[in-house]
Write a protein that binds this DNA or RNA. Structure first.
Length: 288
DNA sequence: AACACGGGGCG
DNA sequence: CGCCCAGTGTT
């Protein structure tokens, strides 16, 4: 299937390029699976530059997987700060609990993907960066490079074929950097691209996505405001109504959704951050 | 395959 | 103001 890929020349070109183009990021070269896991979950749908400080703060607060597992989930949510998608923080805590319970991080992709919040990308990221497993990774940056070069299709198999055995961690880091710094979404710097001669991109940018409704009217926005309000202290529904300036309807729907996710719970007349003590061991979803 | 899910950076 | 981001889970 991928016999036609110019594997050797592509690898040579990227290796040559990567020697001088490394981004100084605190998780670069990290080998500890816990610290890699924290960084990768924070990096989901979040630009690297925005993750640096929260990552350092989070690790200072929870230096090891056992300390994270022993923490109050509400405190983990507070430590998440304003990174967004707070369900990531809750799942990270659940993953820490599962890892402690089983006596350490799994090394295989198949086992890693069973952890809450760890999908196909993050499982492979942990496997390659922590254990140098022979797997390629496909996220936004890498996908863009491979698709522009070789066309759309199964990019995971392309990434796996391109990844050299024995140095997968360095390779995958290099591919991410190539996508982030050269093969950028809007204004790619093709003139300084090491694989330009192998690239078949026609320079046509993708079609724009369907317009989104005003963010302030979405349930997402309401959820965010409520979680932010509860970060400080628990509150009644009336207090939330006053503090968030949200329409009552929105509050109702958002509270229901947040309760379902375990991001908040109800204690008497008040709502508070995190799952209730009873449902802390409840699985992430009802179907899985 | 299509949606929901946050928030901030950038042109 | 619209696009994008080291994606995941659900339907």
């Amino acid at each position: 299937m991928n016999d036609s890929l110019p594997v050797s020349s592509f690898r040579r070109a990227v290796w040559r390029w990567t020697r001088t183009r490394e981004r100084p990021l605190p998780w670069r070269g990290e080998r500890d699976p816990y610290r890699i896991c924290v960084s990768e979950v924070m990096l989901q749908q979040t630009q690297a530059s925005r993750v640096v400080q929260p990552y350092l703060d989070f690790l200072a607060r929870f230096p090891s997987v056992s300390e994270l597992a022993a923490a109050e989930p509400a405190d983990v949510l507070r430590a998440w700060g304003s990174l967004g998608y707070p369900r990531r923080a809750l799942n990270l805590w659940r993953t820490a609990c599962a890892v402690v319970e089983r006596g350490g991080f799994p090394r295989s992709v198949d086992e890693l993907v069973t952890l809450p919040g760890i999908g196909p990308y993050t499982a492979r990221a942990i496997a390659t960066f922590a254990f140098d497993a022979h797997v390629g990774i496909v996220e936004a940056n890498v996908r863009r490079v491979y698709e522009r070069c070789f066309g759309s299709g199964d990019m995971q198999s392309v990434a796996d074929a391109m990844t050299p055995r024995g140095s997968s961690a360095r390779w995958n880091q290099a591919m991410i950097d190539l996508g982030a710094e050269v093969c950028r979404p809007r204004d790619p710097r093709c003139e300084s691209c090491p694989v330009r001669s192998m690239c078949s991109w026609d320079g046509v940018l993708g079609a724009s996505k369907k317009p989104a409704p005003p963010f302030e009217t979405t349930l997402r926005f309401a959820r965010g405001r409520i979680v932010d309000a509860l970060r400080e202290r628990e509150a009644t529904r009336a207090q939330l109504l006053r503090r968030t300036n949200l329409p009552q309807m929105r509050i109702e729907d958002a509270l229901d959704a947040l309760l379902e996710d375990g991001l908040i719970h109800r204690a008497g007349a008040r709502y508070a951050l995190g799952p209730s003590a009873r449902e802390r061991s409840r699985p992430t979803s009802l179907t899985k």
